[in-house]
Design a protein around this nucleic acid. Structure first.
Lengths: 143, 143
DNA sequence: CCCCTTTCCTACAAAAATAGTATGATTTAA
DNA sequence: TTAAATCATACTATTTTTGTAGGAAAGGGG
């Protein structure tokens, strides 16, 4: 399992906001109940999303969280990486600033690079809206 | 970093065998020195590879390890997964025997499935020989 | 038969990452 | 003023990772 609960819960949280925000802010307690995640744990997770500007909040009574953009404008990659770090196969990938000194002699580096690209091809080209659409398409199949 | 040192070292070990085995068995001590890995740690790693039949051993003086097949017959996926487990994005993927009960209601499952397929597309279609060939091609570029 | 080399086996342990809990301060609407 | 909510930080238990340690077993050469 390469995606931890933090990443998975962040994605669930963003999906929940996509589905349940209409006009008003959504309380964390409601998300916690619907998604069956500890509210205290969600507080920790949402703070990362907030600090990177992916959600905005309102404090006090009737407060909660909202998406800043539309669901089709968030990639699942940016959400998961916000919690998981850069998700590179190894620490020698994605280091254009300070590349590994043995990189050019390394038999494995091209592999890690390909793997990284393959993962990002999925993560950076799938949006929250895609996840919602895929589910709807599947439900149509049953009708 | 989703590939641990165990997986990386297993791959280095198999690559080292590919490059240095001619007729005789290769000692772990030599591999440890060339690849700069603790010999004791390598012992642990090679035992997994041996138990799954990827290498064969000879004990005693002049003993060591050899590949069972040719380098082009090993995928990097089977080597890494031998040490890392199945490398699925989440534990709900690759459970055809006992699938998650919420799978059909899950917004995320299709994503994890796509990610898994994308990773395996690379891991299961790259062989040890490919890694060696890629390096040689790169070296030709400098000539 | 004895010694040296090498694999084989298993237990232990330090360090880091993961998955949360706990406590309470702060802000806001009613 | 009070209740509802976010915000901040510290703590902790568990698991995973990354090895180390010690010795048993096997085989080759003298």
């Amino acid at each position: 399992m390469i995606i931890s609960t933090k990443g998975k819960n962040a994605l669930k949280l963003m999906l929940d906001l996509s589905l349940y925000q209409v006009e008003e802010y959504v309380k964390l307690g409601d998300i916690a109940r619907r998604e069956e995640i500890s509210e205290k744990y969600l507080e920790q997770i949402v703070s990362y999303l907030q600090k990177s500007g992916k959600v905005k909040s309102a404090r006090g009574a009737h407060g909660g969280y909202r998406l800043v953009k539309n669901p089709e404008e968030y990639t699942v990659g940016e959400i998961i990486k916000c919690l998981e770090g850069d998700m590179a196969p190894t620490d020698c990938v994605n280091r254009d600033d300070s590349p590994c000194k043995k990189r050019d002699q390394c038999f494995c580096y091209p592999l890690w690079n390909k793997l990284d690209k393959a993962m990002n091809e999925v993560l950076n080209h799938t949006t929250l809206q895609d996840l919602i659409d895929w589910k709807e398409e599947k439900e149509e199949d049953y009708e």
